[in-house]
Amino acid sequence: MWRTEEESFSGAAVHACTGIAAASRQTPWGIWVPMVTPMRAGSLDLPGAARLAESYLEAGVNGLIILGTTGEGSLLSTHERQVFTAAVLEAVHGELPVMAGVGAIDTRAVCAQVAELDGFDLAGYLVPPPCYLRPSDAGIVWHFNEVARATERPLMLYNVPKRTGCAMSPALIRSLLAQPQISAVKECGAGNLGVLVNDPHVTVLCGEDAALLDHLLAGGAGVIAASSHIRPDLFVRLLHLAQTGRFRAARALFAKLAPLISLMFAEPNPAPVKAALALSGVISPETRLPLQPASPALVQRLEEAMALLPPHTVARDEHLAA
């Protein structure tokens, strides 16, 4: 979901917004799912996408990211990106904010992606620095300023050096977030997470699944976790436990999630996520080449890890900690 600057946020005391003033800056928080793009026989599986989006809405997650790394966004055509966006937005019918990932080597190409999607009712865009080029800090600032000029919607920074080859320092992130249109950062580095989480002027969402518990217990605003595709209700509960100071129960629940989380990146993303969803009968495990489906060995390990998760009927902290 989104909260405003006027709403208090201190450590675990995160409150859902009940209304947003038009002039207020909006910032994301909570559990955001970086949605996969379901496929069948080389084409988009739009009914499958709608089922997924509806299930995440019902599970109580706070937002969706589409067309990002986990969504194979860079492998989709302009038309596919548009029809997928339309299908997801229709499925959540305004009850869940949806951000779209945009990214490329060339800043002009990123701005073109924004122009192609800006007619949709999106909550904003998740934007990494240009990949491969490794620009200076001044070049990164220029990049984000140009993308911001291409839309009136909020931007979320995406700091993922292992994919872009370009690391944004805490100082650079702070300076970028001083621009009102840039609302938050998805941070994938443990070092930056530790530095930024206690900065009252920075909204940082954890993009590293293995670090999400530490981030939430430290008072982080939220997470964008590929593993939250599987049993999103448990991730929503984990957030609630952390926010309400029930740290022992949060650690106990995370311990049950950890075996699955550890497998989500055992092979290139999003193959493990799609394989786990396929085991649940939700979508096909198909990925788009050159990405390959998960190996049979990993599928077996995923099935074993999923069998260890608490059943849907478990609701009490005592059961989760058992």
Rank of each mutant, 00 (worst) to 15 (best):
A86G: 13
A86S: 06
A87K: 00
A87R: 13
L89D: 02
L89K: 04
L89C: 10
L89Q: 05
E90C: 09
A91R: 08
A91P: 01
A91M: 05
A91T: 11
G94Y: 06
P97D: 05
V98T: 00
V98G: 04
M99P: 01
M99S: 02
V102C: 13
G103A: 01
T107L: 09
R108P: 00
A109K: 01
A109M: 03
A109V: 11
V110I: 01
C111G: 00
C111Y: 05
A112K: 13
A115I: 02
E116K: 08
E116L: 04
L117K: 09
D121C: 07
L122Y: 08
L122E: 10
G124W: 15
L126D: 04
L126A: 06
L126W: 14
V127E: 02
P128G: 11
P128F: 12
P129K: 08
P130L: 05
C131V: 15
C131N: 11
Y132C: 12
P135D: 12
S136G: 12
D137K: 06
D137H: 14
A138I: 03
A138N: 01
I140F: 05
W142A: 14
W142Y: 13
W142G: 00
H143A: 07
H143W: 03
H143P: 14
H143E: 12
F144P: 09
N145V: 04
N145W: 05
E146P: 04
V147W: 04
V147P: 08
R149K: 12
R149L: 02
A150K: 03
A150D: 00
R153V: 04
L155E: 09
L155V: 05
M156F: 07
L157E: 09
Y158M: 00
Y158W: 08
V160W: 11
P161Q: 14
K162Y: 15
R163P: 01
G165S: 13
C166Y: 02
A167T: 14
A167I: 10
M168A: 05
S169F: 06
A171R: 15
I173W: 06
R174T: 02
R174W: 11
R174C: 12
R174G: 07
S175N: 15
S175K: 14
L176D: 08
A178R: 13
A178F: 01
P180C: 07
Q181E: 11
Q181Y: 09
I182D: 14
I182T: 13
S183F: 00
A184H: 13
V185C: 12
V185A: 06
K186S: 11
K186R: 08
C188A: 14
G189W: 02
G191Y: 06
N192C: 05
L193V: 01
L193R: 02
V195A: 07
V197M: 07
N198G: 15
D199K: 02
D199S: 07
H201L: 13
H201A: 15
H201F: 09
H201N: 15
